[in-house]
């Protein structure tokens, strides 16, 4: 399964790529932003893949300019409640903090809102990860109640807030399409 839009291709994670993901996921530069920061073994990775390789979880390798540069996902999808938990990490230094992150997020966003038709997204962001907080707030995520003092804080984006924010994000989406 592949999603191609906004100049990026998202290729659904397959078993032959889980070792690549594991290597990067164990890299301290990625690990520092994750809630789970212990070393992930090959066996743990294989077990994890067996648990997520289904319709309740979509993990995609982000491909840009024919390079595999990161991973984006929507996990723990509850189709009855219309909820899921998106996430992203970029391992290629050339593309960290670049427009490609937003291209990938918009590509997956179209899949989440229009294909999966989810209505509410939940994320957890470390309080220390200011860039991620700023990024997610821009798209309309709001801190949930009683999270102020937690290290790993929960934010929610409802479909309503996503649409309310669309005017603001439209300028950027137009830029992505144009470029």
């Amino acid at each position: 399964m592949e999603l191609s839009k906004y100049g990026v291709t998202l290729k659904r994670l397959t078993e032959d790529k889980i070792e690549l993901v594991r290597q990067w996921r164990n890299n301290p530069k990625i690990q520092q932003y994750m809630e789970y920061r212990e070393y992930i073994t090959e066996e743990m990775q294989k077990n994890w893949f067996q648990k997520i390789n289904n319709d309740n979880n979509y993990y995609f390798i982000i491909v840009y300019n024919n390079k595999e540069i990161g991973l984006i996902n929507i996990k723990n999808i509850d189709y009855e409640k219309g909820t899921g938990e998106p996430g992203i990490f970029i391992w290629d230094d050339e593309y960290i903090n670049s427009d490609v992150t937003i291209r990938a997020s918009c590509c997956q966003g179209d899949f989440i809102w229009n294909t999966l038709k989810l209505n509410e997204l939940h994320i957890h962001v470390l309080k220390s990860n200011k860039r991620a907080i700023q990024y997610n707030k821009f798209f309309g995520y709001e801190l949930t109640k009683n999270q102020e003092n937690k290290e790993n804080q929960e934010y929610i984006l409802t479909r309503e807030n996503m649409l309310k924010n669309y005017k603001k994000t439209e300028r950027l989406i137009k830029t992505i399409i144009k470029n």
């Binding site: 903090n97 427009d99 490609v100 937003i102 700023q134 990024y135 137009k174 830029t175 992505i176």
Partner: peptide, 11 residues
């Protein structure tokens, strides 16, 4: 500085 700013600069 983050990916959002990168895109805002292009715009």
């Amino acid at each position: 500085y983050c990916s959002l700013i990168a895109l805002k600069l292009i715009a």
